[in-house]
């Protein structure tokens, strides 16, 4: 997933966070969050994880889990107003 790695991201939870920790963090710390399934396209990449995958949004910032085989799952934040709007239109509110 070289594409996401090349984006100007903020590390919200560091290397080795579990997918469960990422989901709980988003649900607890973001007033706006959405759910998607694995294979959902975000920043032109397909998201990995156990469904439902929680995506947080704060203004134009999207917070999402990003899994690497050798390290586990990171929780990253990327500012992109257009992508945030697309998530609002295509993701779901319910688990």
């Amino acid at each position: 997933m070289g594409c996401i790695e090349n984006l100007p991201y903020e590390m919200i939870l560091p290397l080795g966070a579990s997918f469960k920790e990422c989901r709980e963090y988003v649900e607890k710390n973001f007033s706006e969050f959405w759910y998607v399934d694995p294979g959902y396209k975000l920043f032109d990449e397909y998201i990995i994880g156990l469904p439902p995958i929680a995506l947080g949004i704060n203004g134009a910032k999207i917070v999402f889990p990003y899994t690497k085989p050798c390290h586990g799952t990171y929780l990253l934040g990327v500012e992109d107003a257009d992508e945030a709007d697309r998530v609002r239109k295509t993701a779901r509110k319910k688990k």
Partner: peptide, 15 residues
């Protein structure tokens, strides 16, 4: 052998 592996398996189950 890691949490990431389970995430990939869940993804495969779904797709």
């Amino acid at each position: 052998h890691s949490d990431a592996g389970i995430s990939y398996a869940a993804t495969m189950r779904h797709i």
